[in-house]
Design a protein around this nucleic acid. Structure first.
Lengths: 221, 221
DNA sequence: TGCAATATTGCACACTGTGCAACAATAGGA
DNA sequence: TCCTATTGTTGCACAGTGTGCAATATTGCA
């Protein structure tokens, strides 16, 4: 059960063999089946057995591709970009909030590739917010990773802070929480944007820019 | 299956009968059993059957008191204070962030009553962060309630904003997200505070005060 | 005491998720 | 083309969560 992405990870675009192509097709079939069942017959009807039946695989095979039902329906959690981008972020000295927003943008852009899946999932999470349960694990993991990354940058730009691990972690954690909040805020505004007049990344810019404004003690005026 | 808290909800402290006292005792027995099993034998061993066995009730009865295993181990989610406090908050015109922090304080203070349970749960969530899964539902619900409340206040203090529901919701949501982030940040700093030199509420003040500082475009300096 | 309300329990059931071993399909060289 | 190692698929048994329901036990109250 090798990761087919590894075939292109080293820069050579190896034509995937029959095995990899079948694997990707199966994964997609299960994923589409999950989304389809939820959209057409509701979250109640979306049991693993039913999804597997629609995808034409055995229920056992379902779990070879997704570790939980929610993962198939709602997708994987966010991931940090590769090492090089992380290093650049650590050494960067521009304002940190927009820098993190840019980091998010590089992560989101490829994920937005498959419009059909993205839009279906958007509709599903809007109709069934309770599906987010299993997502907690991945968001929590992402919070930890981002905190770590921000801490590296803070330590890099302020050695005095690096000498106080507790203060460093505390500050990094707050920045990570705030930016993830902005990300979620942008996502929700995007979901509420009826004509989709602005893209997700534009909403993210809006949210980041709204932050200092909202925090002014005197309130917006 | 009436809520025993209702007996005092209207201001009259009715002496609870044998039924209510037994009910509270059973609830507590299950709760303590859950915490004890996790602490002594790990999260793996903490099955519903085992917890029920320790609490000396049937597994079925466990689910009469808690809707899930996690709820027994980690406790209920946060709740907004009563109507009067909410109304006062809506009409209040002091800076909104400290005002929300004060709101949190009124909610947290009674919840901090039972030191034994609080400390045990603190240790458990520290050792097993993955337990938070089921908590997502309650945090999500709380986010929605707080957003609604903040929106009422924003509409009350700025009629122009009230006329634009989307902008109103967007702003209220961001404020709710940020303050909940600050709350979670304070909770984590509190968990990391070894000698417990500062209480949870003091950490909350710290977090709220740290917000504008962190957001300054030039960064901390 | 006796009746109404409520709590506890056992039981059957649907569902998620995992380990394991048998079986099927593919890759890649002889 | 055939052979074999590797990898993918499936069925099966199992442990666990959570729910509905009906029988039984307990409590409140007249």
């Amino acid at each position: 059960m090798s990761d087919p992405d590894l075939a292109i990870a080293d820069g050579f675009a190896i034509e995937p063999g029959l095995r990899e192509r079948k694997r990707l097709a199966t994964r997609r079939a299960i994923l589409m089946a999950a989304i389809t069942v939820v959209r057409e017959r509701g979250l109640e009807a979306a049991t693993v057995d039913e999804i597997a039946r629609i995808a034409d695989v055995s229920p056992r095979t379902f779990f070879n591709y997704f570790s939980s039902k929610e993962e198939a329906i709602v997708g994987d959690g966010p991931e940090l970009p590769g090492e090089e981008a992380q290093e650049a972020f650590v050494r960067d000295r521009s304002p940190i909030l927009p820098a993190i927003a840019a980091l998010f943008a590089t992560v989101i852009t490829p994920a937005l590739h498959d419009q059909e899946i993205i839009l279906a999932r958007r509709a599903i999470t809007k109709e069934y917010p309770e599906i987010g349960g299993r997502r907690w694990a991945s968001i929590h993991r992402f919070e930890g990773q981002l905190t770590e990354l921000v801490a590296r940058r803070l330590a890099d730009e302020d050695p005095a802070l690096a000498a106080d691990p507790r203060a460093l972690t505390s500050r990094a954690r707050l920045i990570a929480f705030i930016t993830i909040s902005a990300m979620r805020h942008a996502w929700l505004d995007w979901m509420d944007d009826p004509g989709e007049r602005r893209g997700l990344l534009e909403h993210l810019d809006d949210s980041i820019r709204m932050l200092p404004e909202v925090l002014r003690p005197s309130g917006p005026r």
